[in-house]
Simulated scan of single mutants.
Amino acid sequence: MKKVVLSTAILATLFGAGPAAAAEEVNVYSYRQPFLIEPMLNEFTKQTGIKVNVKFAKKGMAEKVQQEGEYSPADVLLTVDISRLSELVDKGVVQKVDSKVIDGNVPAQFRDSDEEWFALTTRSRAVYSSRDRVGKLGDDFDYLDLAKPEFKGKICTRSGKHPYNVSLVASIIANHGEAEAKEWLKGVKANLARKPQGNDRAQVKAISEGLCDVSLGNSYYLGKMLADKEQKAWADSVYLNYPGQNANGTHVNISGMALAKFSPNKENAIKLMEFLTSDFAQGMYAEVNYEEPVKKGVASSKLVSSWGSYKADDLPLTTIADNYAKAVKLIDEVQFDL
């Protein structure tokens, strides 16, 4: 009997005393940059006493969690773009979350109908235009206009295969059909000033250098450039435009979260997910990364508000996800990046 008691004590020392040990931490896999989420996670720990362990990655999250299977330490998965959230669901690495708190904070449009993913912020796919050579684009301007002859040799963009652009194409398919979307891609490609390359900020830099006059880019990058001493001159050279104000509206994507299928700290994970939809965390997203909070009543930053209000495309995010594969196919067919 003494040996049994001793063995039990040793095991408890080595692996922790079951639930009591698990209650002290939560593990996060994140595509989101450390500077953005660490302040929020630190506040969560301060309020709850739960330690947050984070693994940051640039790609391969779904594959990693899938390979780890039931032995995965992941609890909460943080990512950007509806396509990446859908991929987590398609690969079967997430589970349903039943939380009245999250449902109350995240509008139905911005969460999965099966409660397997939830948006945390929204970000618009805007168009930047040269202040000197183009000026501010009017409310009549739409994404479809980028394929018109007047933009010949004037457009810069990152790869058409980047998720931000694929999601935009998916929205155009949903709103206008595959045939029109393909013709639009052909027209935009014909109007490119250079081969697709770089990130969204690199396109604004190209505008400031006179290499092109307009570019596609997420709106929050304007805030990031204005806050950077070296990049402020790029930002000062452009106007931010919200396309589709007299049509379907500006395409909006999201950042979001999901609960890992084999979460070893499920209770703590849900507490963290609820916290990330709270006024405090939503406000921090708005101030630090210039994104739009999904929770109603939480204001955008003063800087973002100064860019003006806009009508967002009200396409359900699931519809964009459903058209994602079609969008990739069309981008390949027109050889957009070549």
Rank of each mutant, 00 (worst) to 15 (best):
Y29H: 11
T319C: 06
N27Q: 06
M273H: 04
Q245N: 09
E333I: 03
N265M: 04
L144Q: 14
D332I: 08
A21K: 13
K182E: 15
A260V: 02
F15L: 14
G249P: 13
D313L: 14
W184S: 01
K59C: 12
K311R: 12
K2Q: 10
I270V: 15
L276Q: 08
A260R: 02
A233G: 05
K148P: 01
Q197G: 09
F118C: 07
K229T: 14
N199T: 10
Y290V: 05
V328P: 05
N246W: 07
D200W: 04
A202R: 09
W117L: 04
P243L: 04
R123W: 12
L317S: 06
G153N: 09
E87S: 14
S278P: 01
S124N: 07
Y310G: 01
I10V: 15
P163I: 07
V334W: 09
V134H: 00
K229A: 15
T318Y: 03
Y310L: 11
E180Q: 15
Q231N: 13
T13Y: 08
P73I: 06
A9S: 11
G308H: 01
Q109P: 04
A258P: 03
S171W: 01
G210D: 05
E116Y: 01
V80R: 05
V54Q: 09
V334I: 07
P293Y: 04
F275K: 00
Q197H: 10
Y31H: 10
Y31P: 10
A179F: 00
S129Y: 05
K59E: 15
E38W: 07
K329C: 06
A174S: 13
Y242V: 02
E287D: 15
G153C: 03
R158G: 14
M1C: 06
V252Q: 14
N191W: 02
G18Q: 15
E63I: 13
E43W: 03
S72V: 10
Q197V: 12
N199Q: 07
G283N: 13
L272F: 10
K326S: 14
V89K: 14
V52C: 07
I37E: 13
R84I: 10
A179W: 01
G92H: 01
L36R: 10
L259F: 03
E333C: 02
A23N: 07
D142L: 04
G297D: 05
G16H: 03
A57D: 10
K182C: 05
W184Y: 08
D75S: 14
D145A: 06
K2I: 12
L78P: 12
F262Y: 15
M273P: 00
N323V: 03
G217E: 02
F280N: 08
F56H: 15
A269W: 00
K189W: 05
D103R: 13
G104D: 11
Q33C: 11
R158A: 14
D140N: 11
L185A: 09
M273V: 03
Y290L: 06
L330P: 09
K329F: 08
Y164R: 05
K59Y: 15
L11R: 07
F151N: 00
